[in-house]
């Protein structure tokens, strides 16, 4: 049964990739948006944000945009799942003798693969506008591994949201409602030093901030901290990020699979 579980999940993942092959627009748009963010932030805000960062604002910005983009996996996973539910496809899958989590595991694999591609395209776009990580191949690769894992962990929250909300349009709103504050109430685009003190503390404990700080560190950039400079998450962004990811997966993988088993309209 266990070997089937993986085989079944792979079939579901393949289906998602086939969808991308059949509607190439999907692929184009899921990569255009992050690239657009890179360009917008680099040229619209980049000009007015003062920094003494060697290499300029773009070095601080890219980790932020990488994290924001993978954070949106939460919404895209949830939307994709909700659409399948609505079309009755999930019902059909559930009436088949396939192993329990295969359908949702397959979707998280598919979204993870898509993330790999999106990250690659963004890295190229970043490179084109002056992003130059200085920490060497090993650390940069580790940074991307972190981003990939973060996307994967959030994908599982997306599964839970998608199974709980069911209506694709509501899911979209919920997805953005969660991801927007998280990505903006963080150190992703501007240093938290400018925020009111209370928000600085929120931002410090925000997983997005830890991830951004971790990526900056791995890409060879100094983080800037205000009131929270001495706190544990600020001092240990790598460990904090890793803990967050493991915690999210430990909670949402079993929860989602259980929810999937019990879901019925």
């Amino acid at each position: 049964m266990v070997n089937y579980a993986l085989a079944d999940a792979v079939v579901i993942t393949k289906r998602q990739l086939l969808q991308l092959a059949r509607i190439p627009e999907l692929l184009v748009f899921s990569t255009i948006q992050p690239v657009m963010f890179v360009l917008l932030f680099r040229f619209v805000f980049g000009g007015s944000i003062q920094t003494d960062q060697p290499g300029g604002y773009v070095q601080l910005l890219m980790p932020g945009i990488f994290v924001q983009t993978v954070a949106f996996t939460l919404a895209s996973t949830a939307i994709g799942l909700a659409e399948d539910m609505k079309k009755g496809l999930i019902d059909r899958f559930r009436s088949l003798p396939i192993s329990r989590g295969a359908v949702v595991i397959g979707r998280t694999f598919g979204d993870a693969l898509l993330n790999l591609l999106v990250l690659a395209v963004m890295a190229l776009a970043g490179f084109a506008v002056g992003w130059r990580p200085t920490s060497g191949v090993m650390k940069v690769s580790l940074g991307f591994l972190f981003l990939f894992m973060f996307g994967y962990a959030l994908s599982w929250i997306g599964i839970y949201v998608g199974l709980s909300v069911k209506e694709a349009r509501t899911v979209q709103s919920v997805g953005f409602l969660v991801t927007f504050p998280l990505t903006f109430l963080s150190n992703a685009f501007a240093p938290t030093t400018g925020m009111p003190r209370a928000l600085q503390y929120f931002a410090e404990w925000n997983p997005v901030s830890s991830m951004v700080a971790a990526c900056r560190q791995l890409f060879g950039v100094e983080n800037q901290f205000g009131a929270t400079a001495n706190s544990w998450p600020s001092q240990h962004p790598l460990e904090t990020s890793l803990l967050y990811m493991l915690l999210l997966m430990a909670i949402f993988i079993p929860l989602s699979i259980k929810k999937y088993k019990n879901t019925s309209h």
Partner: peptide, 17 residues
């Protein structure tokens, strides 16, 4: 599930494929 086939009220197939 190993014994049954189901065709629901609304066609449940992947529309994009």
């Amino acid at each position: 599930r190993k014994l049954i086939g189901l065709s629901g009220q609304y066609a449940a197939v992947d529309e994009t494929l």
